[in-house]
Simulated assay, not measured.
Amino acid sequence: MRWLAALMLALGLTSAAGMAQTSVDSGLGAVLRGLDKVNGETVDVEIPWGGTLNVFGLSVTVQDCRYPPENPTGDAFALLTITDRVSGYQAFHGWMVASSPALNALDHNRYDVWVLRCITS
Results as ranks from 00 to 15, higher is better:
21 Q>C: 03
64 D>T: 09
72 P>Q: 02
105 A>D: 04
24 V>P: 06
31 V>A: 03
113 V>T: 05
40 G>K: 14
63 Q>N: 15
59 S>T: 05
74 G>N: 10
80 L>D: 01
65 C>V: 06
95 W>I: 12
47 I>S: 04
84 D>F: 04
115 V>D: 05
113 V>P: 00
84 D>W: 04
21 Q>R: 07
116 L>T: 14
30 A>I: 06
99 S>D: 12
72 P>A: 01
23 S>E: 15
87 S>C: 00
37 K>N: 07
107 D>T: 13
46 E>A: 10
90 Q>D: 09
87 S>R: 03
57 G>R: 02
56 F>S: 02
28 L>C: 09
107 D>N: 15
58 L>G: 04
23 S>P: 10
76 A>Q: 10
67 Y>M: 06
67 Y>S: 03
95 W>R: 01
79 L>Q: 08
38 V>K: 09
34 G>R: 02
89 Y>S: 08
20 A>M: 13
81 T>K: 14
102 A>E: 10
119 I>L: 10
84 D>C: 07
50 G>W: 11
110 R>W: 02
14 T>W: 00
13 L>Y: 02
25 D>L: 15
86 V>T: 14
108 H>T: 05
24 V>W: 14
9 L>Y: 05
12 G>T: 01
96 M>P: 05
24 V>S: 13
55 V>I: 09
54 N>I: 02
104 N>W: 00
23 S>K: 14
102 A>S: 15
105 A>L: 04
30 A>C: 07
104 N>V: 07
21 Q>K: 12
74 G>A: 15
49 W>Y: 13
67 Y>A: 03
46 E>P: 00
99 S>Y: 08
89 Y>H: 14
91 A>S: 14
95 W>A: 00
97 V>M: 09
117 R>P: 09
96 M>R: 09
73 T>M: 07
46 E>R: 13
50 G>D: 11
13 L>P: 02
